[in-house]
């Protein structure tokens, strides 16, 4: 303790305290930042009882914004024709039910079990049709052409989601989410329905086989190890530049200051 006390008032103590504070804040943030991971099974065929249960659930949770007949209100669009795939995507990623009307809805923990989501999806699909939830075979990546998936992803997806699917910024407060947690079904549904600001990639423009190729690329890329060890968020030059300029250059500047600092000679008379 006397070692600590003797050095408490030195200038370097200030730097050490700042560094400690940064580390503590970083650890606390990392421990409390939320994550979301959703498992998905294939949906069973809709029955009338499913649709009725779905209607009850819809009336209870969704109708306040989307209207009792899903016709839409000023706060939320009509869901007639949106299809089961859109409902499954939005609810399984936790974007719906939306907590507030904002620039966009972010993914989060789901409020409903998969079974309940399928029931609501069946009800919404019964209102006006629309894209159906893809089954397991449609999203299976066996035999997919990952290289073609990379070409398609780079041309149509990378400008919003980043080249490694790490997400990116859009205009006016929106952002394209990272693709690290999405299941193949969710990726397929997102391409099919075009949620929020994302454009629609219907089966006419990107065929189901091409969608599988893109899913194969996304799934392969996110498990690929980072060649340098630490990904720095996989956003490329932005984070890399930040680390080099703040971390690397800062370290070099501190070393340069130390090299040229006035030397502290020890006093034989013990004046320290």
């Amino acid at each position: 303790m006397s070692w600590f006390n003797a050095r408490r008032r030195r200038p370097v103590a200030g730097y050490a305290a700042l560094l400690l504070g940064l580390v503590v804040v970083g650890l606390v943030y990392g421990a409390f930042s939320r994550t979301s991971g959703i498992a998905q099974a294939s949906s069973p065929a809709p029955s009338q009882s499913d649709i009725n249960t779905g209607k009850n659930l819809f009336d209870a949770t969704c109708s306040s914004c989307h209207g009792l007949d899903a016709q839409g209100t000023t706060q939320a669009p009509s869901l007639v024709g949106a299809g089961a795939a859109a409902v499954d995507f939005q609810m399984s990623t936790g974007r719906m039910p939306a907590k507030e009307v904002g620039a966009e809805n972010n993914s989060g923990p789901t409020m409903f079990s998969a079974q309940k989501i399928y029931e609501i999806a069946d009800y919404v699909a019964s209102l006006g049709g629309g894209p159906a939830i893809p089954d397991a075979q449609q999203v299976s990546t066996a035999g997919a052409d990952t290289a073609l998936g990379e070409e398609l992803f780079s041309a149509n997806c990378a400008q919003c989601h980043g080249f490694a699917g790490a997400g990116g910024a859009l205009t006016y407060g929106k952002d394209a989410p990272p693709l690290t947690q999405a299941t193949p079904t969710q990726i397929y549904e997102a391409m099919l329905t075009g949620p929020e600001a994302m454009p629609v990639f219907a089966d006419g423009s990107i065929s189901p086989a091409a969608k599988r190729d893109i899913i194969a690329y996304i799934v392969d890329t996110r498990v690929e190890p980072n060649a340098g060890g630490f990904s720095l968020g996989r956003t490329g030059p932005i984070t890399e530049g930040l680390v080099i300029f703040l971390g690397g250059m800062g370290f070099l500047v501190i070393i340069a200051l130390w090299i040229t600092a006035k030397r502290r000679d020890p006093r034989p008379t013990g004046m320290e």
Binding site: E151, N156, G204
Partner: peptide, 22 residues
Amino acid sequence: LVFGTDTPITSAEFSVPGSAIT
């Protein structure tokens, strides 16, 4: 032609509003 798959496209195939493609 749609980039990547190099297939031509009709208006009916590109009918969902909000679609975009290279």
